[in-house]
């Protein structure tokens, strides 16, 4: 992690606007976006500048996309409005607008997402991210009739030598920091609506932030009736330890209970499974396994929900059961070949 240090005289609105257009030698567009994303740096009319950049036709698509993502951090409401107004975007603007609407938009924004996915910059990743944005809107707002969840190829259960883990309750102070990190991603989350659990994973402490409705029968009945964002998995930044949202836990009703899926914030599924009511509907029992993709471990996660609390435990492999992918050798990219 390294911040860019820009002299105060370069932080003027005109200088930053020129940099974003690639029209000055004192700063690149990438540096300008990086500085604008840093709330600790005082840039006059920051949000206006970002908003204008998103809408500008003469700014590179990558810079416009980065500006929209930065705006989503500094002024979420303005970012949603800017995303709705995007027309004929390039790929990066389309991806930024789709991500903004999925995470921060309203239930009617599925139409705007569909329009962006049908625009001029349709690539496989735009289609995939748009699918996920619509899924996210459906789960955030409990929109029914989402169809059957797709079945995913899962990694087999780990052996007995895999690392065992079990959740613990988190103290009020620790939970407050974790909830604050989740609010950066989902502003509506609070201690009133969610409970926080901690799980020791190797040297790191990850946290589960789960809907409080799980703890009572009426709340569970509601969750069994419509798609929901059941919770979040928060992991520490590997460099400075600050927590951030790593996974979303999505639930969708099935004939016998819930289909569960933990996805990255970009939508790729990481764990998948089911939950079913326990005897007399006094709780829920869930089982999840790792989705087969490069770098995935063998993993079995169990969750038990009852009136007295939530417990999550299981086993996870230390190393990948499915090997990570190996990038292609590219000799023309070697610095030694060019010097």
């Amino acid at each position: 992690m390294m911040y860019l240090d820009v002299p105060a005289e370069r932080l003027q609105r005109d200088t930053m606007a020129a940099a974003l257009r690639g029209a000055t030698a004192v700063m690149t567009a990438g540096e300008a976006v990086s500085v604008l994303s840093n709330a600790a740096v005082d840039v006059p009319e920051r949000d206006d500048l970002l908003d204008e950049t998103v809408a500008a036709d003469d700014v590179a698509d990558t810079v416009r996309g980065a500006a929209l993502r930065a705006l989503a951090r500094t002024a979420p409401d303005r970012a949603v409005a800017a995303a709705r107004n995007v027309r004929d975007p390039g790929e990066q603007v389309a991806l930024a607008a789709i991500a903004t609407l999925g995470r921060l938009g309203g239930p009617a924004d599925a139409a705007a997402v569909a329009r962006l996915a049908g625009g001029t910059a349709v690539t496989p990743v735009v289609v995939a991210r748009a699918d996920f944005a619509r899924t996210l809107l459906a789960h955030r707002f409990g929109l029914k009739n989402q169809g059957e969840p797709p079945s995913l190829d899962l990694v087999a259960e780990p052996g007995s030598t895999a690392d065992a883990f079990v959740s613990n309750a988190t103290g009020v102070t620790g939970a407050s920091a974790i909830l604050a990190a989740v609010r950066d991603w989902a502003p509506e989350v609070s201690g009133e609506t969610h409970v926080v659990l901690a799980i020791a994973c190797r040297e790191q402490l990850i946290h589960l932030v789960l809907r409080r409705e799980l703890l009572d029968a009426q709340g569970r009945t509601g969750l069994l009736a419509a798609p929901a964002v059941l919770g979040f998995v928060v992991s520490p930044n590997p460099e400075h330890g600050n927590p951030g949202v790593a996974l979303l836990v999505l639930s969708q009703p099935t004939a016998v209970g819930l289909a569960l899926k933990a996805t990255r914030t970009t939508g790729e599924p990481v764990y998948s499974g089911t939950a079913e009511p326990t005897a007399n509907s006094a709780g829920l029992a869930a089982d999840l396994y790792a989705v087969r993709r490069p770098g995935a471990p063998a993993c079995h996660i169990r969750g038990l929900v009852s009136e007295t609390g939530i417990e999550v435990f299981g086993r996870s492999g230390h190393t990948a059961a499915i090997p990570p992918r190996v990038p292609e050798r590219r000799p023309e990219g070697d610095p030694s070949k060019r010097s």
Binding site: L4, V33, S37, N38, A66, E239
Partner: peptide
Amino acid sequence: VKSYVGPTAGLSPV
């Protein structure tokens, strides 16, 4: 990567 949105310009575990 060409862009890492946010105030910092890289990330690595210690």
